[in-house]
């Protein structure tokens, strides 16, 4: 009994009056953070839109060069991880410490799967020379792939700005991937705090905020996937 009270007393920081005030402030802060994240990625989406409208051929061929099956697999993986993140929050709110830990681990594992798939995608592109901008130098299999993709999309020759497409592809997926890695790290931290019993039915704000962040990472991918892989 006394240990439980002790565990609770730590969470209310001195400058807040009530746990509700503290929770609301944290939630507002997190939403503001997500808003700035959206604007951060917004710049990339604008650049994507501008260049797409200038060099549509490069964009069509580019999207044919990405493996939509891998993209779809990653989309499914991230959607599932959002579900496990929600379940982690739910478990934390209901005070199920063990389940919280397991769901957090599951989310981390799924994020890991996403990164492994991404690794194989990147590795292939590096191998065949689909490098960004000035390093763009397709050879061997890469050239054959471009010819095939150009034929499929009815474009003559190799569009010069394919290099810009891959420039943006690597920046957009790279920055997103960095967010996934940060998410994995934060969830690992949450897992550790959960293990130490810091969360309870009365206090699970950090888990909830982490999940909010994770949903944002998920949603950004939901936009990246069709824009880069699917749209002709």
């Amino acid at each position: 009994m006394s240990t439980e009270a002790h565990g609770d007393s730590h969470f209310l920081q001195h400058h807040y009056d009530t746990p509700a005030q503290q929770f609301n402030a944290a939630k507002l802060g997190m939403w503001l953070f997500l808003a700035q994240e959206l604007l951060f990625f917004g710049g990339l989406f604008v650049a994507y839109g501008v260049f797409r409208s200038w060099y549509p051929q490069a964009w069509v061929v580019g999207s044919h060069l990405l493996d939509y099956r891998m993209g779809a697999l990653n989309t499914a993986v991230l959607l599932l991880s959002s579900f496990t993140a929600v379940m982690a929050v739910r478990s934390a709110q209901t005070g199920n410490q063990k389940a919280t830990g397991n769901f957090l681990l599951a989310t981390i594992a799924l994020a890991g799967v996403f990164m492994v798939v991404k690794y194989f995608e990147y590795a292939h592109k590096f191998e065949v020379g689909f490098l960004p901008g000035s390093h763009f130098a397709p050879h061997g299999v890469g050239l054959a792939e471009i010819v095939e993709a150009a034929r499929e999309s009815g474009v003559n020759g190799v569009p010069y700005h394919l290099r810009t497409f891959f420039g943006l592809y690597f920046v957009m997926t790279g920055v997103h991937g960095l967010h996934v890695l940060i998410g994995m790290f934060v969830m690992g931290w949450m897992w550790n705090r959960n293990r130490k019993g810091e969360f309870s039915t009365r206090y699970s704000t950090p888990v909830e905020m982490t999940a909010l962040y994770w949903h944002l990472v998920d949603i950004i991918w939901i936009f990246l996937f069709p824009l880069l892989y699917l749209i002709d």
Binding site: F51, P132, T164, G167
Partner: peptide
């Protein structure tokens, strides 16, 4: 890296 977004040479 030279991704070709702002530099007209690329």
């Amino acid at each position: 890296v030279g991704i070709g977004i702002f530099d007209p040479a690329l």
